[in-house]
């Protein structure tokens, strides 16, 4: 059994209480949500926090998926499992269910949260790629109020985010646009492993023509900017194999993978290409089928 170094523990009873504690306890305090990233680091003694502020009691306040007409709002404490099992989300953004089916395992998904996932800011993290693909925005709250930041601004580098001392992430917002759908694909060495590479794609269409598209990648370098060149290449085009191939080539060219135990940089680059093509094709199929959620789930 791996055992962490000593720390103090407090349970927050509300978002304001949590923020108050963060302000009072300063830089040595950390929030714990699902704990599936933080606790392993504590047990391996890779983090030297002194105070742990448990925000699991905030699930009632921050655990939700709210469907609006032009925006979907997801509370930071929404668990992976809730994202996986939300029928509304599956209908509107099937990319979530695609991704959640391959994130970790049921034990992790029962506790891990979208807020913790984004705040961990691990470049291999899948929900960051999903949120990037959907051009999500993050609501960061402190004692003086709220800020809304894009994924690109939220992510400051590996394990670093725009959440400043005394602040926390409370909500993720995703704009709803008509005639769109999305998809996600991941290559892993084994079920429950982190991605070797994964890709998400979202497309919006007008008849046979793609009006807009976004691709987000994971595990091949910083992954929260989206890939504007792909969006430009696809806009106004009819989907063809050649178009997908072009998008795939752009994805491969614009990522920065490194060689590690999960695979070589060349292989990951190849996957960025392959998975970009696969997810774009599936997203387009879903738009064309008019059913957003359930096409090709089990391929």
């Amino acid at each position: 059994m791996q055992v962490p170094a000593p720390f103090e523990y407090e349970r927050a009873t509300s978002v304001d209480h949590a923020i108050g504690l963060l302000e009072r306890l300063g830089g040595e305090a950390r929030l714990v949500a699902g704990g599936h990233s933080l606790l392993p680091m504590m047990k391996l003694r890779l983090t030297d926090l002194e105070y742990l502020i448990d925000i699991n009691d905030l699930h009632a306040e921050l655990g939700y998926v709210r469907m609006g007409t032009d925006e979907v709002r997801i509370g930071a404490m929404t668990r992976h499992r809730e994202l996986l099992e939300s029928p509304e989300l599956a209908a509107l953004f099937p990319i979530f269910a695609d991704a959640e089916r391959v994130i970790a395992d049921p034990v992790v998904r029962n506790r891990g949260t979208i807020g913790g996932s984004l705040c961990q800011a691990d470049p291999s993290e899948d929900l960051s790629a999903v949120c990037t693909t959907l051009n999500a925005h993050c609501v960061v709250r402190g004692s003086t109020g709220e800020r809304v930041v894009s994924m690109e601004d939220f992510y400051r580098g590996p394990y670093e985010t725009a959440v400043e001392q005394g602040e926390m992430l409370t909500e993720i917002r995703i704009a709803v646009r008509p005639n769109g759908s999305s998809a996600y694909a991941k290559v892993e060495r084994r079920a429950g492993d982190w991605a070797v590479t994964s890709a998400g794609a979202a497309v919006w269409m007008d008849g046979p023509v793609i009006t807009d598209a976004r691709v987000g990648l994971a595990a091949v370098g910083p992954n929260t900017t989206g890939i504007p060149e792909i969006s430009e290449a696809l806009r106004g085009q009819e989907p063809t194999d050649a178009l997908y191939a072009r998008a795939g080539a752009i994805a491969a060219a614009s990522c920065t993978p490194t060689t590690d135990n999960r695979g070589t940089a060349d292989y990951k680059r190849h996957l960025a290409n392959e998975l970009t093509q696969r997810t774009l094709r599936r997203a387009v199929d879903r738009v064309q089928a008019g059913v957003r959620g359930d096409i090709g789930r089990d391929e």
Partner: peptide, 8 residues
Amino acid sequence: LTPSRVWD
């Protein structure tokens, strides 16, 4: 024979 090594 991980995916990367099979791809190689």
